[in-house]
Each structure stands twice: as structure tokens, then as C-alpha cells.
Design a protein around this nucleic acid. Structure first.
Lengths: 228, 228
DNA sequence: CGCCGCCCTTGACGGCCATCAAGGCGCACA
DNA sequence: TGTGCGCCTTGATGGCCGTCAAGGGCGGCG
């Protein structure tokens, strides 16, 4: 991968890479590759042998699984500056545990597993960063499992909307849905029809206003309390 | 904690601790404490400040969350020789992300967070073991999220039963449910009534036979195929 | 031995949400 | 400007599964 000082700077600000020495960063980039994906283009499939993990620089990628019947569950929506698929680093026989596909044109960097493992061995600080990151991921999973198991679809939609609102926001606040509603529906584990109906009923109750992919929460605190 | 050669031997066979030197193991045990819990006794609550993680030596512990309405979801059932709550190691402000409670009388060892972090710093092999363990946990979470989002209750029950069957088992095979059915129901995210009805319909179809907490799968491969 | 309590089972009922179907709207393209 | 195609919305219907209620089995304890 050719040198790219903008990328080097991005890495310096990323929790996973900020503890690397210049030499380590250079080694990592020497075995990294840049990738561009068109909207809808697949990156890897569930079960594929894996030797790389990724940093998204622009665009949007979904990680998802399909049921045998073809129903899709979006496990995670990746936004720029996020890394994903790090967990293939520590598998004995590394295989992607989900499928990945661009939902809009995307630029990303693919890092080499072996190179990064070698760097980890030299850098406890980076080890810690990786483990902290995996811990956050696990926490998010607990939350999602709880939400899926204990809450209904209306709650999940509200929870998702509130997740788009900064935690310090108050009063009226407008968020932009990160992608098409059909993808969001697959993310909160409902059908597009149910998502549409839920947004309508929230609108009818005066809790939100919807205009295309812009959703305005009339009163953030009220919506937070509303999660009944 | 007083020296306990049986425990020391157990640790030598545990993936998390087998790479420790004798001196490291001694340091770890010097700050560890033994705990005994009666059936139903709580160990920690969701949100508690956390300075220890645990190894279960005997009995059974459930990790769970409660919804505001009081509904319970069992996130994990811990069996002897398993560790849990390791993820508090890497949090900035460590708090247990779930509640833990003995479902039957249990003996466990509580390890000190700070001591273990110090040892990690010296031992990349143990770091790797921890990361590999977290990776397995994350995989299990993907599977559970997929199952909750895309599959119905019947599938989840069958999936749970098959999870109790060794992967190399064929033909007729009998498993023992690890705990009361009401806990298992909270684990597969159904009500006890639905679990009961599902087991009945599987029985009526000749797929399993139920006798108390013993479930005999008539034909393991047939049941595996059956998860349509 | 008899009583009680807990766990599990079974039945009746209802609500949530998926499915099927149709129609509106915006956008690309001719 | 007309046409076609996605995406989203809205309506009608039905099934899964949760809720409520009652009853049976079993172990603990007096």
C-alpha cells in the first residue's frame, strides 16, 4: 500500500493504532491494502477464510447474517473511522463470523492479521486497546440480546432512534438515518412494514416527525422516558 | 486464600491460567478469595462496581438481566471449570454488565482484577488466551443474536437441546438438563409454558422423549436436520 | 402420614407482528 | 414529459406465543 500521510494521521487518532511506534505503523501499512467498494458490493461472506480485518474510511458497510430462509439480520452498521472483524485475529482457524457488504460506496483499509499479531506481541498497550475494544463490543452484545429477548418492536425502534441522539442532547433534536429504512429494519429485527407503522404511530403521538431520512425527536427526554 | 494444591492443578488445566509461571500463579492466588454460595444466593448485581472475576469450581451460576417489568433473560449458564466476568478487566470504570446468582449451591474463586492485569502485562501468551476467550464469547453472542432475531421459539429450543449434545454424537442420545426448566426457558427467551408446549410437540412427533430433566434425542442427526 | 409449596403442564384467549397485497412517491432515463 | 423501478407506506389477515387460570406431581417438613 502506498504511503498516505492522511491515513497515517487517521491511525494516530484511532484507539487501536495510536499506541504504535512509527516503525510498527510502517510495518502494518506495508502489508495493508486499500479497498474500494461500490454500493451493494460484498466484502466477505460468513464462513470465508479470513486473513484481514478492516478500517472503514468513508461510506457505510453492514455486517449481517442470513437465515436459511433468506431473512437478513444486520448485526452492525459500520461508519467511517470504525474498525471491524478484529475478532478474526485470535481464532485458530480464522473465518468471518458474519457477512459484510457495502450499503453505499465505501473506502476501506484491509490490515494483515499476521502483521498485527506480531505487533501486539511487542506492545502491551495495543493489546489493552484491543481488549478494551472487544469488551465494549461484548457490552453492546449484552444490550442487544437483552433488547431482543425482553422488549417489543416498538421499544427496539425507539431505542435505535435514541442511539442516534448524542447522550447530552436535550429538547428538540434531528437525526439523519444512516441508511435506507429496509436496512435499519433488518438491524432492529423487524420487517420494513413494522418499522414504517411504528414510526407512524410515534408520529401520530407527537413524539417524532419524519421527513425522508430525517427524524426529528420533539423532546429527547420525553422519548427517553417513553420507553415504557 | 490458603494454598490449595487441587486448585493449583485446576488452574494448570485452564486455558486462561495454564501459561502462568509458578510465581505468577502464586501472586494471583495470594489475592484471590474462595466463595461459597447457597442456591438462589446473589453474587453481584448489574451495575455493581467490579474488582473481581470468577472461576466456578462446582454448582451452577446464572448470569442474567431483568427488564424494567421484571422479566428475566438468562444470558449465560456457568458450569464448573468455566470463568466469567473477565470483561470487567478492561473497563475504565469496571461495573458488572449483568447480574449473577447461584441457581444451585456453588463454590467459586474470585480473582483480583489488578493482580491479573499486572500478570497480563508480563505474559503475552496469557493475553492471547484472554483475547481468544473473548473472541469465542463474541462468536457465541453473534449466534445468539441471530437466533433471537431470525428464528422462532421452536427453533431456539431445538438449538438449545442440540447444544447439550456432543458434536460427535450420532443416533440416540440422552442429555440431562443443567437446571430447572424455568431457568432454561429464560435462557432461550420463552415462557415456561411455551417451553413445556414445545417439548411436548417434539415428543408427539417422536423426535425426543422427556423424563424429568432427562431428555433423550431419538435421532440426533434427524433433529439436526429438523431445524428447518 | 398429611399438608403445603414449588415446579411443571395443559387449556383458553388475545395481542403483537409477520405476511400478503396494493398503491403512492421520488428518481433515473429515454 | 412519460415510463419504469425501487423504496416506502398502508390495509387486511392470520399465526405464533405470551398471559391468565387451573390442575397435577413431587419433595420437604411438621
Amino acid at each position: 500500500m502506498q504511503t498516505d500521510s492522511a491515513l497515517a494521521r487517521e491511525l494516530r487518532h484511532h484507539y487501536l493504532f495510536c499506541a504504535l511506534t512509527d516503525a510498527q505503523q510502517a510495518r502494518l501499512l506495508a502489508t495493508a491494502t486499500a479497498r474500494r467498494l461500490a454500493a451493494g458490493e460484498p466484502l466477505f461472506s460468513h464462513g470465508d477464510a479470513a486473513a484481514q480485518f478492516f478500517l472503514l474510511r468513508s461510506g457505510c458497510v453492514k455486517l449481517y447474517r442470513l437465515s436459511p430462509e433468506g431473512d437478513e439480520k444486520v448485526m452492525r452498521l459500520i461508519r467511517p473511522a470504525q474498525t471491524f472483524a478484529e475478532s478474526i485475529l485470535f481464532m485458530d482457524a480464522p473465518r468471518y463470523p458474519v457477512s459484510g457488504e457495502a450499503v453505499e460506496a465505501a473506502e476501506l483499509v484491509a490490515f494483515d492479521r499476521g502483521t498485527f499479531l506480531g505487533i501486539l506481541q511487542e506492545s502491551f498497550a495495543t493489546c489493552q486497546a484491543v481488549m478494551a475494544q472487544m469488551t465494549r463490543r461484548i457490552q453492546a452484545h449484552w444490550d442487544e440480546i437483552e433488547t431482543l429477548a425482553l422488549q417489543n418492536s416498538r421499544y427496539r425502534v425507539v431505542h435505535y432512534l435514541l442511539g442516534l441522539v448524542p447522550s447530552d442532547a436535550r429538547g428538540r433534536f434531528t437525526v439523519t438515518l444512516p441508511t435506507r429504512k429496509v436496512v435499519i429494519a433488518a438491524h432492529v429485527a423487524v420487517t420494513p412494514e413494522t418499522l414504517s407503522r411504528t414510526l407512524r404511530s410515534l408520529t401520530d403521538e407527537g413524539l417524532i416527525e419524519v421527513a425522508g431520512d430525517e427524524v426529528t425527536v420533539s423532546d429527547v427526554d420525553r422519548l427517553r422516558r417513553h420507553m415504557h
